[in-house]
Amino acid sequence: MRAPRFVALGDSLTEGVGDPVEDGRRRGWAALLADGLGPGAEFTNLAVSGSQTRDVLDRQLSAALALRPDIASVVIGVNDTLRCTFDIHAVAARLDAIYGAFRERGVVLLTACLPDPGAMLGLPGALARPLARRQRAVNTVVHALSERHGAVHLHASEGAWLTDRAMWSADRLHPGERGHRQLAVRFHALLTEAGIATGPAPSAEPEFPVPTRSASLWWLATAGTGWVARRCTDLLPQLLTLAAAEVRHKARGTSARLDLSASHAVAAALAALSVPEQRPEVA
């Protein structure tokens, strides 16, 4: 019996941002998990920083399928919420196509719901609430489609780890080494329970020293500011408009309408997936 073959798809979270190792390389939760899947497990990380669901569908999926994996992780969606082009219908259709392509080939699929970026960045309420609403929409879609496609799903959008500063890197959007290890440990537990992972669980304890506060502040003042700006620039004008709408609805006592509208959009997006011709084609 050959060793399990694990392929990881996604964005900077899976690429390993926040978990640097020797020689400036990034490791991340998926690489940590791979070591515990079983003897000789093969691992390929196709995740690319900044990716959205369309990038996974158009670029990463075909490369992943060509590797004929036994296990594949698809953890994606936060970058979609940080774009002015955000469309929950398109996100749902892409994820359905990606998940379906793996499940049709009998691949064990790993998915996760993720924390809302506005809260993690500590944005003011009027700015944070629209992002939170978008992330809740993505998480609801991921939950529903994970169940539909029989994925091993990790609830990473809640729990004490979100407020534990030791889990997070300087940018507050990516886990630090301890946080990446937490994700690997939790995924490993789910896979062990399902009889899929046969190797030892990853250690929860960091291997490398935690960056000093001065180093973290330097990163934020240099690379970090640019990193956030590159991903949010096209969103800022729209986000200000959304924030203004939040303020107006709050003043009128009609904020619930915004949540209701988002819920209806999610329901419509999921209902539309029952029509096969509306799904994007897999390259």
Results as ranks from 00 to 15, higher is better:
residue 70 D to T: 06
residue 21 V to E: 03
residue 56 V to N: 11
residue 182 Q to E: 13
residue 101 A to P: 06
residue 245 A to I: 11
residue 61 L to Y: 02
residue 54 R to N: 06
residue 264 H to G: 14
residue 279 R to G: 05
residue 93 A to R: 07
residue 241 T to N: 13
residue 32 L to S: 12
residue 277 E to N: 11
residue 164 D to M: 01
residue 236 L to V: 15
residue 153 H to F: 04
residue 84 C to D: 15
residue 114 L to A: 09
residue 41 A to D: 01
residue 127 L to Y: 07
residue 160 A to C: 02
residue 57 L to P: 08
residue 228 V to F: 15
residue 219 W to K: 05
residue 61 L to S: 09
residue 258 L to W: 07
residue 45 N to E: 08
residue 83 R to F: 08
residue 226 G to D: 05
residue 257 R to Q: 11
residue 212 T to K: 00
residue 138 V to H: 10
residue 160 A to V: 09
residue 183 L to S: 05
residue 91 V to D: 13
residue 95 L to A: 10
residue 187 F to S: 01
residue 61 L to G: 10
residue 60 Q to G: 07
residue 179 G to P: 00
residue 80 D to T: 11
residue 71 I to K: 04
residue 245 A to V: 10
residue 272 A to E: 03
residue 85 T to D: 09
residue 255 S to E: 14
residue 162 L to G: 14
residue 62 S to W: 03
residue 242 L to W: 14
residue 208 F to C: 06
residue 113 C to W: 07
residue 111 T to F: 04
residue 154 L to R: 07
residue 36 G to I: 01
residue 157 S to P: 06
residue 260 L to N: 12
residue 174 H to E: 02
residue 91 V to P: 10
residue 39 P to H: 01
residue 277 E to C: 12
residue 157 S to M: 05
residue 277 E to I: 10
residue 76 I to D: 03
residue 85 T to V: 12
residue 39 P to V: 10
residue 6 F to A: 02
residue 133 R to E: 07
residue 74 V to N: 03
residue 239 L to I: 07
residue 189 A to S: 07
residue 218 W to T: 08
residue 145 L to T: 05
residue 191 L to M: 01
residue 79 N to K: 03
residue 48 V to Q: 09
residue 162 L to E: 09
residue 213 R to S: 09
residue 163 T to S: 11
residue 144 A to D: 11
residue 257 R to D: 14
residue 282 V to D: 13
residue 196 I to R: 12
residue 233 T to E: 14
residue 223 A to P: 04
residue 162 L to P: 09
residue 51 S to I: 08
residue 164 D to K: 08
residue 191 L to E: 05
residue 71 I to M: 01
residue 52 Q to K: 15
residue 67 L to H: 06
residue 156 A to W: 09
residue 171 D to R: 04
residue 254 T to G: 02
residue 36 G to V: 00
residue 60 Q to N: 04
residue 47 A to L: 07
residue 188 H to K: 03
residue 175 P to A: 02
residue 216 S to W: 00
residue 16 G to L: 01
residue 184 A to L: 03
residue 252 R to N: 05
residue 259 D to S: 15
residue 42 E to V: 14
residue 207 E to W: 06
residue 254 T to W: 01
residue 16 G to S: 08
residue 87 D to L: 04
residue 238 Q to P: 02
residue 64 A to I: 07
residue 217 L to W: 15
residue 165 R to H: 12
residue 55 D to M: 05
residue 66 A to N: 01
residue 104 E to D: 15
residue 2 R to A: 05
residue 259 D to V: 01
residue 148 R to P: 14
residue 89 H to D: 14
residue 189 A to E: 11
residue 151 A to W: 01
residue 203 S to A: 03
residue 116 D to R: 10
residue 155 H to Q: 13
residue 10 G to H: 07
residue 21 V to H: 12
residue 182 Q to G: 15
residue 170 A to Q: 06
residue 236 L to E: 03
residue 157 S to H: 14
residue 227 W to D: 13
residue 104 E to P: 04
residue 100 G to H: 00
residue 255 S to T: 09
